[in-house]
Design a protein around this nucleic acid. Structure first.
Length: 442
RNA sequence: GUGGAUGUAGCUCAACGGCAGAGCACCUGAUUGUGGUUCAGGCGGUUGAGGGUUCAAGUCCCUUCAUCCACCCCA
């Protein structure tokens, strides 16, 4: 035993066996389909970026989680593994702008890496599914992102979900209104973000612990907790803050557009206690939380108009969202929301082999099935028939094609459907059609 | 990074400081051309690793590694 290396993936990194892979492919397929339906085109970028591309974008804490990736003998270019897909997007836009047409709408589904301590729903390598619109400053772009989020979450079959919407400028305005110094805004964000977990009193306590004045706390808590159906909560805030560059106008416009697009009112909600952690957001922000099994947020996004300016003289307005497919998959697992036909294998038919004298015929059967578009696996060893059928059964292959000496001398193939044991004989030239019919359940 | 819990067969878990076990899975046969049920048999372990206490350690102590949970942070 000790001569073997203990088989183990690195901490926070996972293998995906076929059954899990099929589920991932299903989820990614649903999301991709709707991204494309909304006019987004695919983009991919290297897993490694120059260290200087990533650093200075995420904040000090996050930077400590970036994996560096050095090759032993070429230390000339300091490299790091990508931490998200947003900074690579900004780099690509700045680098290839002559080849892109604005507005640039791209989606990007790829693994990213963070050196966090792993936990359920949190890994060191995980996929992000991002869709972003570069070059549009107006709320139409934000509205399209939210409309698309709503369609994807519905498509995945979540019975109930709420997209929380807030606005970064509104949070800033509330802070200013309450008399909070600008340099304490990050403290405000961090504490308010825990509202769901700590409750109003917990947030008050934490703000106080951060050294924020009592009267400022109570003034802003009243505003942050404003909650009323539809745009009524916006009215409450406006009564206190008045009109101005506080994001309220954009949120009203957003509500108007969502309603016009037919987004059901129960699927979105203005929630002034929702804060996105990342510092680069500048406008409307979005987040979806599903609370049944609590795995944290499954989507996150918003407007970040200044990020591209890190790579380019003039920035470009950008808005977008990210789907956390690892958590979505964990939720679909828990709620069992996969379509029934999603099994453990893609193989639709197993072609049995009796022995050396019949294997030519088995090869021809497999080929006939494949020509008919059926995923056919040829049994590569001539074990006894019961073993071969048992193999198909355990693997979840629905059909077995049998051609022993009896069938061969009669010029036919026997097809057996394992679900109900139904069998029929067909000519080789009809096998594709017959197999299709059996798979369809007739 | 901080705190807590847990590591025994491929998997889920038992075993008072006293011979390491069960269920499931796997393999073989009953059934030489028919799976899922049943029956019989079989394979499978340096109890995560290292050290200590003891006549004796899976069990107690220390160290270390890993996993899970909470915090921090996030998808």
């Amino acid at each position: 035993m000790s001569q073997f290396i203990k088989p183990r993936a690195p901490k926070g990194f996972r293998d995906f066996l076929p059954r899990a892979m099929l589920r991932r492919r299903y989820v990614i397929g649903c999301i991709t389909e709707i991204f494309e339906r909304f006019g987004f085109d695919p983009l991919d970028t290297p897993i490694l970026e120059l260290r200087e591309t990533l650093f200075g974008k995420y904040g000090e804490d996050a930077e400590q989680l970036i994996f560096s990736a050095q090759h032993g003998r070429s230390a000339s270019e300091p490299l790091a593994m990508r931490y998200d897909l947003t900074v690579p997007l900004a780099r690509v836009v700045a680098q290839h702008e002559s080849q892109l047409h604005l507005p640039f709408k791209r989606y990007h589904i790829a693994p990213v890496f963070r050196g966090e301590r792993p936990q359920r729903g949190r890994y060191r390598e995980f996929y992000q599914c991002d869709a972003d619109i570069v070059g549009v400053a107006g709320v139409m772009a934000d509205a399209e992102i939210v409309i698309m989020m709503q369609q994807i979450l519905s498509r995945l079959g979540f019975p109930q979900f709420v997209i929380k919407i807030n606005h970064r400028r509104l949070l800033t305005a509330i802070g200013a209104f309450s008399g909070l110094p600008a340099d304490q805004l990050p403290d405000l964000y961090r504490s308010v973000d825990k509202y769901d977990k700590l409750g109003a009193d917990g947030v008050r306590a934490e703000l106080a612990a951060r050294g924020i004045a009592e009267d400022a706390i109570s003034r802003m808590m009243d505003l942050l907790q404003a909650h009323a159906p539809g745009t009524a909560s916006l009215d409450q805030i406006e009564d206190a803050l008045g009109k101005g560059e506080n994001g309220l106008g954009e949120l009203r416009e957003l509500a108007d557009l969502l309603a016009a697009a037919g987004v059901p009112a129960e699927h979105y909600d203005f929630d002034f206690t929702m804060v996105r952690g990342l510092g680069y957001y500048t406008g409307p922000i979005f987040e979806t939380v599903i609370s049944q099994p609590n795995l944290g947020s499954i989507t996150g996004g918003g407007r970040y108009d200044n990020l591209i300016g890190m790579f380019r003289r003039q920035s470009l307005p950008t808005t977008g969202t990210s789907f956390g497919i690892e958590r979505i998959i964990d939720l679909l697992d828990a709620l069992d929301l996969y379509p029934a036909e999603l099994g453990g294998t893609l193989v639709q038919a197993l072609v049995t082999v009796f022995g050396a004298d019949t294997r030519h015929e088995s090869l021809r059967i497999a080929e006939a099935l494949r020509e008919a578009g059926i995923n056919a696996e040829l049994h590569l060893e001539s074990r006894k028939l019961g073993r071969q059928i048992a193999y198909a059964d355990r693997k979840g292959i629905p059909l077995v094609a049998i051609a022993g000496s009896e069938e061969i001398s009669a010029g036919v193939v026997k097809l057996r459907r394992l679900a109900d044991g139904y069998e029929l004989f067909v000519d080789l030239e009809d096998i594709g059609y017959a197999a299709q019919a059996l798979l369809a359940g007739s």
